[in-house]
Simulated scan of single mutants.
Amino acid sequence: MRTALRSLKPARLATTGLTALGAAGIATTALAGTAHAAQAPAKPATKPAAVAHAHDAKATKAAKDSDKADAKAKDEKKAEKKAGGKEYADNLDGWIREARAIMKEHGIPGSYEGIKRNIIRESAGDPNAVNDWDINAKKGTPSKGLLQVIQPTFDRYHVEGTPDELTDPVANIVAACNYAADRYGSMDNVDSAY
């Protein structure tokens, strides 16, 4: 009987149905067609069920731990961004500060106050704001993002190292400030639609 049971060890990896069948049912099923099936002593189902439960509990705990780690990483990434080795909050203040750090590296002027004033006027701080009523929208290129930039302007003034996405808050600020610097000298000089 030991020989027959040793050959079954690989089958023990499959724990599905272990609890439902119980030890006697598993032994009978596994040894069906052999002379040992009838002679197999019935063991209480507690040990295999406990093994299955422990295995399932470990797998469930590992999955939950993995999910928690993923969620924590997403939350941390959402809460803070890094630029130039410094961390920035994922909110209007953080976006402006991160944009200004990038602007400084590229020689693009614009004060915190000037940028924020224009953002509040243009989008009320909503990075997903879309203007669907002005002349640009009527021509098929609506203004989008914190500083209401149209796609062709964003493409022309996009700054390397920022995401290539018009509604990304930092990329939108940097591109708009780059455009304003070229056109008006600085975003600080913009006091209306530009």
Score class of each variant (00 low, 15 high):
residue 116 K to M: 03
residue 65 D to K: 05
residue 105 E to H: 09
residue 82 K to H: 07
residue 144 K to D: 01
residue 123 S to G: 04
residue 126 D to L: 08
residue 141 T to C: 00
residue 117 R to G: 06
residue 94 G to E: 09
residue 152 P to W: 03
residue 159 V to L: 01
residue 154 F to K: 00
residue 79 A to C: 03
residue 169 P to Y: 10
residue 129 A to Y: 00
residue 72 K to I: 14
residue 143 S to N: 10
residue 122 E to W: 02
residue 83 A to I: 10
residue 108 I to S: 04
residue 159 V to I: 07
residue 184 Y to L: 04
residue 115 I to S: 02
residue 114 G to Y: 10
residue 138 K to G: 02
residue 93 D to H: 08
residue 119 I to E: 00
residue 139 K to M: 13
residue 82 K to R: 07
residue 175 A to L: 07
residue 90 D to G: 15
residue 118 N to R: 13
residue 88 Y to P: 08
residue 149 V to I: 13
residue 108 I to A: 08
residue 69 A to V: 00
residue 141 T to D: 12
residue 93 D to A: 06
residue 106 H to S: 03
residue 107 G to F: 02
residue 114 G to M: 05
residue 53 H to C: 09
residue 67 D to Q: 15
residue 81 K to E: 11
residue 54 A to G: 14
residue 50 A to K: 13
residue 169 P to W: 09
residue 134 D to Q: 08
residue 116 K to I: 06
residue 74 K to I: 12
residue 67 D to T: 15
residue 57 A to H: 06
residue 59 A to M: 13
residue 110 G to W: 03
residue 122 E to S: 13
residue 156 R to A: 11
residue 57 A to L: 10
residue 123 S to K: 02
residue 177 C to K: 05
residue 65 D to G: 05
residue 118 N to E: 12
residue 157 Y to H: 13
residue 157 Y to G: 08
residue 122 E to R: 04
residue 150 I to D: 05
residue 170 V to N: 02
residue 77 K to F: 15
residue 110 G to E: 04
residue 66 S to T: 15
residue 125 G to A: 04
residue 159 V to N: 03
residue 131 N to R: 07
residue 111 S to N: 10
residue 98 E to L: 12
residue 136 N to K: 03
residue 55 H to L: 14
residue 93 D to W: 01
residue 112 Y to N: 12
residue 146 L to P: 00
residue 99 A to E: 08
residue 72 K to Y: 07
residue 139 K to T: 05
residue 64 K to L: 14
residue 94 G to F: 05
residue 45 A to G: 15
residue 94 G to P: 02
residue 74 K to Y: 08
residue 133 W to A: 14
residue 141 T to P: 01
residue 155 D to W: 06
residue 135 I to G: 00
residue 184 Y to M: 04
residue 116 K to Q: 08
residue 179 Y to K: 01
residue 139 K to F: 08
residue 137 A to N: 05
residue 61 K to Y: 07
residue 70 D to I: 14
residue 60 T to G: 11
residue 172 N to Q: 09
residue 114 G to E: 10
residue 160 E to M: 01
residue 93 D to I: 01
residue 64 K to M: 10
residue 68 K to G: 14
residue 66 S to I: 04
residue 146 L to S: 03
residue 50 A to I: 06
residue 165 E to A: 15
residue 171 A to T: 02
residue 128 N to P: 03
residue 166 L to Q: 08
residue 181 A to K: 06
